[in-house]
Design a protein around this nucleic acid. Structure first.
Lengths: 341, 341
DNA sequence: TTGAAAGCGCTAACAA
DNA sequence: TTGTTAGCGCTTTCAA
């Protein structure tokens, strides 16, 4: 990086007539070091413009102080919030981040993990791609005792902590709300159900129906990619249903918005003919007309918690192995679901 | 990171009965090494599960292979796209990223730079906060010859490359489009004009007016923070104007959308009474009704170009010092600006 | 084309 | 409470 000579602990040691080891100790919170020695060292270091050399330290300690982060897409609003939270914690705690995106492809996820493994990350935070079905590609890390924390898109694994919301309850809340508005035939637009979040939301949907004795009708569940385009096509499918449904619960806001647009174009009144509830509380939810009722949950907080849990694990040897951390979610009621009585 | 013994070049050297130096050479594209020796080394390394130790290498070479990235907010749609582009390039070229956000505060920007300086980043990619007015806080890096590339929100500096779009031309295009729709009184809602992007867009606005001999009226320029809330307040201000303007050009989509919402609520017809053009082409632009005419420009590409330019600079000693790289933008015409003739 | 040897800057075991 | 010492794993100069 630079060709100018850097100040090292040896330089400080020389000036202060102590050993480099003492300087090294003085620069951290080492026990057994005299207070005034420590102060002298810190002062001199500052005066001489000393910069800690992380790489020498890493080499010696065999720690990289680097955390890997893999998300499906950095530019997804939810995930950029999570990353923002992770960044905040990591920066504060002196960890660096390697960030990578799977683009929802299992192949990319495998590649990223290999690269990160080679970069010797200390730990990994990951939200799985929609294609991911097993943890085989993660075993490489676990065999080396590199801790792993899943967030949002998770999978069951005995050795890993998961940071999630209660997707089943959230799906239940959304569906129950629609039922309370008088809906009887509710379509559920969902993602690939090998992904926990989508499977759980579906479960919640089923449970809410069951509680009011409505039989589950699998023809009302549409599993798609939850993109703009796929949802528009699904909307056309919905328009052909006989009889028309009176409610839709979609597993993300993008698909909800796309759907509303399409339905409105076909002359359907939202929420009077069909009430709609989304998921994620993205910015578009308050732009679409009518404003979208949705499930909100704290992305930034999820990132912060995942990161600090991981860092705690890295710093302590005796960690109580938390298996699952569940964050709160909330049903945010707006106009898209409120039928006039 | 791990307590298991790693395979080192010494282990390979021992197996192959050569020196560690030869192994080190064989593992890269060192000239002066026999082809079959090289192949033998590479094969054995792979067989033994050798992983290159970046930290030992960094320590020795005094390079960190780490690039710093500072953006105002990670969760901004545009900046998350840029980061996505930077990540892609950095990952491919074997660089790590340290990402930090200024939250539009100069104080945070200064802190992040200090932290990154201490982490000995090889180079920095930065999009400045709205508060930033000078490059004093960057001199620390430049004195150490750490290359610096500005993107999007930039500032003039002789030693630094800047990756931008032609904001003046974009502002001109937006305004000219409104004029062509028959607008005579165009409000320009802009950000803080100490930031290049906003100053330039204003310039373009002025130029377009001048070309059709409309006098610039400073009371039609509203400088705000360009948030949802600030734009809503500004919309109220616009509603009180006598006479009402017939066009609005805002410097981002968030404020355009907020504005449209507010104006519609007051009974203004968009675009017939007031035509609106935004900036950035965010997802909300196609959700608002009427859909928002806006300026689109390639965030992901900007990130990719900024990153590869920086990495080129790092790898070569004799770099032609590109001062400014200008990317294309385009006017995306939607309903919010098209007055019926 | 290859090898010997030194050292990047730090930390930690052990000794004093 | 402090010092001595021996590396962490790699690269690179110099010599062969």
């Amino acid at each position: 990086m630079t060709h100018y000579k850097e100040v090292t602990i040896y330089d400080i040691a020389e000036v202060l007539k102590v050993s480099p080891a003492t300087v090294s100790r003085g620069l951290k919170d080492h026990p057994g070091i005299r207070k005034d020695t420590k102060r002298k060292i810190v002062d001199t270091a500052k005066k001489m413009g000393y910069q800690h050399n992380t790489f020498a330290s890493n080499l010696r300690r065999k720690k990289t102080n680097t955390i890997g982060v893999i998300v499906p897409r950095i530019e997804s609003h939810f995930h950029s919030l999570v990353i923002s939270g992770i960044e905040k914690v990591a920066n504060t705690m002196g960890y660096n981040l390697i960030i990578s995106q799977s683009q929802e492809l299992f192949k990319n996820e495998v590649n990223s993990i290999a690269t990160m493994f080679n970069s010797r990350i200390d730990g990994l935070l990951i939200s799985l791609s929609n294609e991911t079905k097993s943890t085989d590609h993660l075993e490489m890390l676990l065999r080396k005792k590199i801790p792993l924390i899943f967030f949002d898109r998770v999978i069951e694994h005995p050795d890993c902590t998961r940071v999630v919301i209660d997707n089943k309850k959230a799906g239940y809340d959304a569906t129950q709300h629609l039922l309370k508005q008088g809906c009887k035939r509710i379509v559920h637009m969902d993602g690939p159900i090998n992904r926990n979040v989508y499977a759980d939301r579906l479960e919640g949907y089923k449970q809410a129906l069951q509680e009011v004795n409505i039989n589950f009708d699998s023809s009302l569940v549409i599993n798609i990619e939850l993109t703009d385009k796929a949802a528009a096509i699904a909307a056309q499918q919905i328009l052909k249903m006989q009889p028309l449904p009176d409610g839709i619960f979609t597993a993300n806001d993008i698909s909800a918005v796309s759907c509303i647009r399409e339905l409105k174009r076909a002359g359907i009144r939202i929420p009077d003919d069909i009430a709609v509830v989304g998921f994620n509380n993205e910015p578009i939810a308050t732009v679409i007309e009518p404003n979208l009722t949705t499930i909100g949950y704290p992305g930034r907080e999820m990132g912060e918690i995942a990161a600090s849990t991981l860092i705690n694990k890295l710093n302590k040897t005796n960690v109580t192995n938390l298996n699952t951390i569940v964050l709160r979610h909330e049903l945010i009621i707006r106009q898209s679901s409120q039928k006039k009585k």
